[in-house]
């Protein structure tokens, strides 16, 4: 920037923005702290917790012992990775052909796909619930993989489409002129250019699937419940559980928080369907 900025102005900005950022982050920081306290200490006054209590990792062990935490963790993992993988498998060819062989109807198809995303889930809750019951896939990971793949498919197609469209067609033509076969063209030219966009699409959709909390809550019980539903089971009051709730929450959000920080830019693009870049 060409404008001169005084050091004092910069310090004020840093302090103001830092304070706000810290406030936004504080709840996350707080459960990290509570997760390393005993249940008795976790409900004390904040200052006392910070200054006068010891640290322990017993809550992490207790969460696993009490409710087989890793079963729910692996459910989340399988459901979010499975639905994203399946979605990519279906979306890549579709986005590919729409980006490179656009037809007159391409725009309409894209807009229609987007419109399916606007359908409020509660509007189709009953039919899906009944169909799943009759097919016997209520409370199964298979059922959730299918539903989450379908609700995220429009986002996957859209994101891939906007990335693929940025690959310049001239490069493909140049490769063809140099005598590359279609197979060589795909493997050596297209794939390397498409990989970054595909990686961000995967990242964002794993995040969305991991945090999805309508279908995962309504279509699962004990067996296939991912972390969203498992954490919800802490909503019944059962005495002192702050430290355990914190430990379970920290483990549930940590992987996504880290992934999310890497995908800030893609987040904007993916969730606004390319309307803001």
């Amino acid at each position: 920037m060409a404008r001169n900025v005084t050091t004092s102005r910069k310090s004020i900005n840093t302090i103001a923005a830092g304070a706000l950022g810290f406030l936004m982050f504080f709840p996350v920081l707080w459960i990290v702290i509570l997760s390393f306290k005993t249940e008795g200490n976790a409900i004390k006054a904040p200052l006392e917790i910070l200054l006068n209590t010891g640290w322990t990792t017993e809550s992490y062990g207790a969460v696993q012992a009490r409710s087989n935490y890793f079963k729910h963790f692996s459910n989340s993992l399988i459901i979010s990775l499975g639905s994203t993988f399946l979605g990519m498998l279906i979306a890549i060819p579709a986005a590919w052909s729409m980006a490179f062989v656009p037809a007159k109807r391409t725009k309409n198809v894209l807009m229609w796909m987007l419109s399916t995303k606007m359908l409020p889930p509660v509007g189709v809750l009953i039919p899906i619930y009944l169909i799943f019951r009759d097919l016997g896939i209520l409370d199964t990971r298979t059922g959730l993989v299918i539903v989450l793949m379908l609700i995220n498919l429009p986002i996957i197609v859209w994101m891939l489409y906007t990335y693929f469209r940025e690959i310049p067609g001239e490069i493909l033509e140049a490769a063809r002129m140099d005598g590359a076969s279609l197979r060589e063209e795909v493997i050596h030219v297209l794939v390397p250019m498409a990989i970054p966009g595909m990686a961000s699409t995967v990242l964002l959709n794993v995040i969305l699937a991991w945090n999805e909390a309508f279908w995962t809550l309504n279509l699962t019980a004990a067996k296939a419940a991912p972390l969203t539903a498992f954490i919800a089971s802490y909503s019944s009051p059962e005495g002192l559980f702050y430290a355990k709730l914190s430990a379970a929450s920290v483990m549930a959000i940590a992987p996504i928080l880290i992934m999310g920080w890497f995908s800030q830019k893609q987040l904007v693009r993916g969730l606004t369907f390319g309307a803001v870049k």
Binding site: M24, W30, N211, A213, I231, I256, Q264
Partner: peptide, 30 residues
Amino acid sequence: PMWGQGIIRIMAIAPFFVMPTVSGLVWKNM
């Protein structure tokens, strides 16, 4: 213009990645 903008931004966007059931329960209880 400020120092540590990257870190501040990372802190500020963290809530978006917290799953809804966790944020509901953490606010309610803690």
